[in-house]
């Protein structure tokens, strides 16, 4: 089902948690809401679920205005970071909870409920655990049960709030692949919140990157990586180095010298040039675009990482081949192959 968020704003007291949010989630899509803590991503998820009321704007579920629909009626599946399983109920009762809560006319028979519970346990790869209590399960198992419970009600959209945040690294990695697989099998429209860009890039069809209550960019992995919309996106998705630059006569100038690539149309004057480490390379001194002093060299598995100060606005790091003859204190000459320009 298509989920559309239109002009949504949410304030907590004087603080704006969400501002001017417009987002469309396509049917069957797995979308990641990505952002640092405090960026409003969880608040947006809760507004979609109906757990939080927006001060302004609308939420549409497949064309139907769901803004004033209470959470009980929205038919969403919500998975919490800390599972929120009912501790006094066993696994089967937890999963069956949503089905048993339906009004009599829509409630399946007990035998059918048992059937469904068994099928869902198979789906989350925990068959036979019906009689266990949440306290007897590991964190990863609990989160799988929580997902089964959310899927049991056949939700119109599945919402996951940092679903793997409380798990250790190994389990987190396993569950990512597993969630992707379940998503492919069920085709459920899914929105999940995360602050871990690796997780978002690995799992999601598209990512929506948020900062300070605003959407910075929505797009596929390639789009956000290859065409970052804002410096924030650039910085958030990986290491980035900033250079002061100017655009004049269709050229990019760093410290007065032109670079080897052209600026996009319509940009002129003082700009910020952001580069990924792999956009920089070592060149002979006469071809340099920038130069700096080596402050430290560290050995990585297959390369050496060189820390350079003085070249860009901040200290930058580049990886060089193991056999590069470099010493701390030496001056290095850097060529800029590529970069992203943002108006100042």
């Amino acid at each position: 089902m298509e989920i559309r968020v239109a002009d949504v704003a949410k304030r907590f007291g004087a603080n704006a948690a969400l501002e001017d949010i417009n987002l469309t989630v396509r049917p069957g899509e797995l979308l990641a809401l990505l952002g640092p803590s405090g960026s409003g991503k969880t608040t947006l998820l809760r507004v979609i679920a109906g757990l939080e009321e927006a001060n302004q704007g609308h939420v549409y579920f497949g064309g139907q205005d769901a803004t004033s629909l209470p959470v009980q009626k929205r038919q969403v599946g919500f998975v919490f970071q800390h599972y929120a399983l009912f501790r006094h109920m066993n696994v089967a009762d937890n999963i069956a909870y949503g089905l048993r809560a339906r009004e009599r006319a829509r409630r399946p028979a007990e035998s059918e409920i048992r059937d469904r519970v068994g099928k869902l346990l198979d789906l989350v790869q925990l068959p036979g655990l019906e009689k266990r209590f949440p306290a007897q399960l590991s964190g990863g198992q609990r989160q799988r049960i929580a997902l089964a419970r959310a899927l049991a009600v056949e939700p119109r959209v599945l919402l996951l709030d940092e679903p793997f945040g409380a798990l250790d690294a190994k389990v987190r990695k396993d569950l990512r692949g597993w969630l992707r697989e379940i998503h492919e099998r069920t085709g459920q429209t899914t929105i999940f919140v995360t602050h871990d860009q690796d997780e978002a890039l690995e799992l999601a069809d598209r990512v929506a990157i948020m900062s300070q209550g605003r959407l910075e960019q929505v797009g596929t992995i390639d789009e956000v990586q290859d065409r970052p919309a804002t410096p924030f996106v650039m910085n958030f998705l990986g290491d980035a180095v900033r250079f002061d630059a100017t655009v004049a006569d269709g050229r990019i100038l760093v410290a007065g010298r032109p670079l080897g690539f052209r600026p996009p149309q319509g940009l002129s004057g003082a700009v910020d040039l952001y580069c990924r480490p792999w956009h920089l390379h070592l060149v002979p001194s006469e071809q340099e675009d920038a130069s700096g002093t080596i402050t430290a060299i560290r050995r990585l598995a297959g390369a050496r990482r060189v820390e350079v100060s003085g070249a860009a606005a901040e200290t930058l790091e580049i990886d060089v081949p193991l056999d590069a003859p470099l010493q701390p204190g030496e001056t290095v000459h850097l060529g800029i192959k590529q970069g992203f320009l943002f108006p100042r």
Binding site: Q72, V76, G77, H82, A84, G98, V153
Partner: peptide
């Protein structure tokens, strides 16, 4: 009592009294 338990119950369609 964990607020999330109540919220989980609500998202699963349960009424307040349930």
């Amino acid at each position: 009592i964990d607020r999330e338990q109540e919220e989980a119950s609500a998202t699963l369609g349960a009424s307040r009294s349930r």
